[in-house]
Nucleic acid binder design. Sequence first.
DNA 1: ACAAATATTTAGATTAGTCTAAATATTTAG
DNA 2: CTAAATATTTAGACTAATCTAAATATTTGT
Lengths: 219, 219
Amino acid sequence: MNSFTEENYLKAIFKLLEKGEKAVSTTALSARMTTKAATVTDMIKRLAEKKLINYEKYQGVTLTEKGKAIAISIIRKHRLWEVFLVEKLHFKWDEVHEMAEQLEHVKSEELVNRIDAFLNFPKFDPHGDPIPDAKGVFNRKKSVLLAEINTGQNCIMTGVVDHSVNFLQYLDKVGLSIGKEIKLIEVVGFDKSIQVQLNGKEKVFLSHEVAKNLLVNKQ
Amino acid sequence: MNSFTEENYLKAIFKLLEKGEKAVSTTALSARMTTKAATVTDMIKRLAEKKLINYEKYQGVTLTEKGKAIAISIIRKHRLWEVFLVEKLHFKWDEVHEMAEQLEHVKSEELVNRIDAFLNFPKFDPHGDPIPDAKGVFNRKKSVLLAEINTGQNCIMTGVVDHSVNFLQYLDKVGLSIGKEIKLIEVVGFDKSIQVQLNGKEKVFLSHEVAKNLLVNKQ
DNA sequence: ACAAATATTTAGATTAGTCTAAATATTTAG
DNA sequence: CTAAATATTTAGACTAATCTAAATATTTGT
C-alpha cells in the first residue's frame, strides 16, 4: 500500500503533466508540494523504486501506467467526495477542498464506487472538473462559466455554481438542466445579458448573473 | 494536531478504562494496539508530555479531560460514519469497521456535525453502541443483555456485545437487527436457551450464548 | 519472605519523510 | 564558447513510530 505522501506526489505529478510538459521537474514538484527540492529528489527515488514513475537523474519524471492509475483514482475520490459534501451536506463549493484532501486517501474501492452510485454517477465536481469513472476514464475538458465563452460557441451544461433552491427552480422553469445543449447567440453589451439557443431550438435570454452561475463544457 | 496513531492510542485507552479498571497497563495497551510493550512505553511518554494522559512509571495510565475529549470525539466520528455506511451506502454492518477506522481520523468538526444532521442524529451505531453527541455526552440509556431480562418482557434490540463477523452473520440469518422488537416467550431451564417472538410475528429459539451477546432496551 | 514469573522500561537500531548545506550538473547570456 | 545563474543531487541530520534485546521493577506462589 502507498502512503498519503506518495499518493499526493503522484497526484501532483499527474496534474503537472496535464499542463503539457513532457516531464515534471524537481523544482516544479517542490513548489507544488511546498517542500524542498532535496526532499523531492528523495521521494522520486522511492517512487521510481516502486515503478510508479519513470525517473532519470536531472531529466525530471513521468508516470508509469501503474502510477497514473493511482493518481487518477485519487482524483476520482477527491472529486466524488467534493460532490458529496456539496450536494448532500450542503457545504459551499469553496469550503470542501480541505476535507476532500483527507477523504481522498480513504482506502476502499467499494466505498468510492458506492459513493459514486449514491450521487448518481456525476460527471463533474462542484468546481466543474471532470470525474474519472471507475475504470479511470474521464473527459479531460474542464467546465467553464457560461459567462466566459464566446459568441457562436456550442456547449453542454455540466453544473451550477449556485445551488440555492431559488436558482435551481429558475433553471427548471427556463428549461435548463445538466446535459442540455446550449449555443451562445449573442451578448448584449449594455448589461452583459446573453441570448442562448437550447437543443438547437428555443432561444432564451439569460442575465449575466445567471450566466456566471452556470458551468458548461465547450463542444 | 494529533497524529492518527496518537488518536488510536487515546481511543484504546478510553475503551480499556470503560471496562472498569482504574488504570490501563502497558501490556493491555500493547495487546490492543498489536504493538510491543516497549513501543507503548515510548508512546505513553509522548502522550503524557502532551498532557493527554496521566502517567507514572509502572503504574499504568488514565486519560486527562483533554485526552478523554479527543477519545470521545474519535468514537463519535467512527460510529456516525458507520451509520452513514450502513444507512446510506447499504453496506452490511459487519463490513464497515475498517472504513470507519479510516474515516474517524478526518479532521473537521463541521463535517462530523453535518453527517450527524444528515443521518438525523442517530443515538446508536449499527452495532448498537451509543453515539456521543456534539458535546461529547453519551446517551447513557444503557442497554441490557437479552439473557438478563424476564419472561414476557418486550424489548427493542439496540446492539451486540460480540462484534465478530461470525456472530453478526448469524444474526443476519435469523432475522435479528438493530431496532427489531423482541418479546421473551420462555426460558428453557435445561440449557438456558430462550424462545423469542420477533416483531409480534415469527418465534425463534436462541441459545444462552447468543442471548448473552445481544443488547436490548426494555420497553 | 523471597525466588521465580511477569511486567515495564531503557538502550540502541530502523524506516519514512523531512530539512540544511555543500557538491555537481545543466542552462543561459554575453 | 565559457562563465554565471539556476537546477538537481548528495551528504548528513532530525522526528515519529516502530522494533529487539537487555535491564529493572513488580507481583505471585510456595
